[in-house]
Deep mutational scan, measured.
Amino acid sequence: DTINITLPDGKTLTLTVTPEFTVKELAEEIARRLGLSPEDIKDTHNGKTLDPSLTLAEYGITPGSTITLEIK
């Protein structure tokens, strides 16, 4: 299953994830792909900052969802 990550420059990154991924694991994968530190990444969905300890499923993030990435 894939989700879309909207980057600060407007580009989109597509990642393969499972509903059990935590937001922290997602940030780590994004950081790895972009050459950043996971601590520099802030993920938001529907205007809410995502708690790193919760899973994508707990936020109702499903395949095809879009998450907005902010760099701290």
Rank of each mutant, 00 (worst) to 15 (best):
residue 1 D to H: 11
residue 1 D to W: 15
residue 1 D to A: 15
residue 1 D to F: 15
residue 1 D to N: 14
residue 2 T to L: 07
residue 2 T to Y: 12
residue 2 T to R: 08
residue 2 T to E: 07
residue 3 I to S: 03
residue 3 I to D: 03
residue 4 N to S: 08
residue 4 N to R: 11
residue 5 I to Y: 00
residue 5 I to S: 05
residue 6 T to C: 14
residue 6 T to K: 14
residue 7 L to S: 03
residue 7 L to W: 05
residue 7 L to Q: 03
residue 7 L to G: 03
residue 7 L to T: 08
residue 7 L to R: 03
residue 8 P to A: 10
residue 8 P to H: 08
residue 8 P to T: 10
residue 8 P to S: 11
residue 9 D to H: 10
residue 9 D to P: 03
residue 9 D to L: 05
residue 9 D to S: 13
residue 10 G to N: 05
residue 11 K to I: 11
residue 11 K to F: 13
residue 11 K to W: 11
residue 11 K to Q: 11
residue 11 K to C: 13
residue 12 T to S: 10
residue 12 T to D: 04
residue 12 T to K: 10
residue 13 L to N: 01
residue 13 L to K: 01
residue 14 T to V: 14
residue 14 T to K: 10
residue 14 T to P: 04
residue 15 L to F: 04
residue 15 L to C: 06
residue 15 L to N: 00
residue 16 T to R: 08
residue 16 T to P: 12
residue 16 T to E: 12
residue 16 T to H: 13
residue 16 T to V: 12
residue 16 T to Q: 12
residue 17 V to R: 00
residue 18 T to Q: 05
residue 19 P to R: 05
residue 19 P to A: 07
residue 19 P to N: 04
residue 19 P to Q: 05
residue 20 E to R: 07
residue 20 E to W: 07
residue 20 E to N: 11
residue 21 F to M: 15
residue 21 F to V: 08
residue 22 T to F: 01
residue 22 T to D: 01
residue 22 T to Y: 01
residue 22 T to W: 01
residue 22 T to H: 01
residue 23 V to I: 11
residue 23 V to N: 00
residue 23 V to A: 02
residue 24 K to L: 09
residue 24 K to Q: 10
residue 24 K to A: 10
residue 24 K to G: 14
residue 24 K to P: 00
residue 26 L to H: 00
residue 26 L to Q: 00
residue 26 L to F: 08
residue 26 L to G: 00
residue 26 L to V: 04
residue 26 L to S: 00
residue 27 A to L: 15
residue 27 A to D: 04
residue 28 E to S: 07
residue 28 E to Q: 11
residue 28 E to W: 09
residue 28 E to L: 09
residue 28 E to H: 09
residue 29 E to M: 08
residue 29 E to V: 11
residue 29 E to S: 06
residue 29 E to D: 03
residue 29 E to W: 12
residue 29 E to A: 13
residue 29 E to T: 09
residue 30 I to S: 00
residue 30 I to T: 01
residue 31 A to H: 06
residue 31 A to D: 01
residue 31 A to L: 06
residue 31 A to Y: 08
residue 31 A to I: 06
residue 32 R to K: 11
residue 32 R to S: 09
residue 32 R to E: 07
residue 32 R to P: 01
residue 32 R to F: 07
residue 33 R to Q: 10
residue 33 R to G: 04
residue 34 L to Q: 02
residue 35 G to W: 03
residue 36 L to I: 14
residue 36 L to C: 14
residue 36 L to N: 05
residue 37 S to C: 14
residue 38 P to W: 14
residue 38 P to Y: 14
residue 39 E to R: 14
residue 39 E to F: 15
residue 39 E to A: 14
residue 40 D to Q: 12
residue 40 D to N: 10
residue 41 I to V: 08
residue 41 I to S: 02
residue 41 I to F: 12
residue 41 I to T: 03
residue 41 I to D: 01
residue 41 I to A: 03
residue 41 I to Q: 02
residue 42 K to D: 07
residue 42 K to N: 09
residue 42 K to A: 13
residue 43 D to M: 15
residue 43 D to A: 15
residue 43 D to I: 15
residue 43 D to Y: 15
residue 43 D to L: 15
residue 43 D to T: 15
residue 44 T to F: 14
residue 44 T to L: 14
residue 45 H to K: 12
residue 45 H to V: 14
residue 45 H to F: 15
residue 46 N to L: 12
residue 46 N to P: 09
residue 46 N to K: 09
residue 47 G to L: 14
residue 48 K to P: 05
residue 48 K to D: 08
residue 48 K to R: 13
residue 49 T to N: 08
residue 49 T to A: 11
residue 49 T to D: 08
residue 49 T to F: 12
residue 50 L to S: 03
residue 50 L to V: 08
residue 50 L to E: 02
residue 50 L to Y: 10
residue 50 L to D: 03
residue 50 L to N: 02
residue 51 D to Y: 04
residue 51 D to N: 10
residue 51 D to Q: 04
residue 52 P to Y: 13
residue 53 S to I: 04
residue 53 S to L: 11
residue 53 S to A: 09
residue 54 L to Q: 07
residue 54 L to H: 08
residue 54 L to N: 05
residue 55 T to V: 03
residue 55 T to Q: 02
residue 55 T to A: 03
residue 55 T to I: 03
residue 56 L to D: 00
residue 56 L to W: 01
residue 56 L to I: 06
residue 56 L to Q: 00
residue 56 L to C: 04
residue 56 L to H: 00
residue 57 A to R: 13
residue 57 A to W: 09
residue 58 E to N: 04
residue 58 E to F: 06
residue 58 E to S: 06
residue 59 Y to F: 10
residue 59 Y to N: 15
residue 60 G to T: 01
residue 60 G to L: 03
residue 60 G to D: 05
residue 60 G to R: 00
residue 60 G to H: 03
residue 61 I to S: 01
residue 61 I to A: 02
residue 61 I to Y: 08
residue 62 T to A: 08
residue 62 T to W: 09
residue 62 T to N: 07
residue 62 T to Q: 09
residue 63 P to G: 08
residue 63 P to M: 09
residue 63 P to C: 06
residue 63 P to S: 10
residue 63 P to I: 06
residue 64 G to I: 01
residue 64 G to K: 01
residue 64 G to Q: 02
residue 65 S to A: 10
residue 65 S to R: 02
residue 66 T to P: 01
residue 68 T to W: 13
residue 68 T to C: 15
residue 68 T to K: 14
residue 69 L to S: 01
residue 69 L to D: 00
residue 70 E to G: 08
residue 70 E to M: 05
residue 70 E to Q: 08
residue 71 I to C: 14
residue 71 I to V: 10
residue 71 I to F: 12
residue 71 I to E: 05
residue 71 I to P: 06
residue 72 K to G: 13
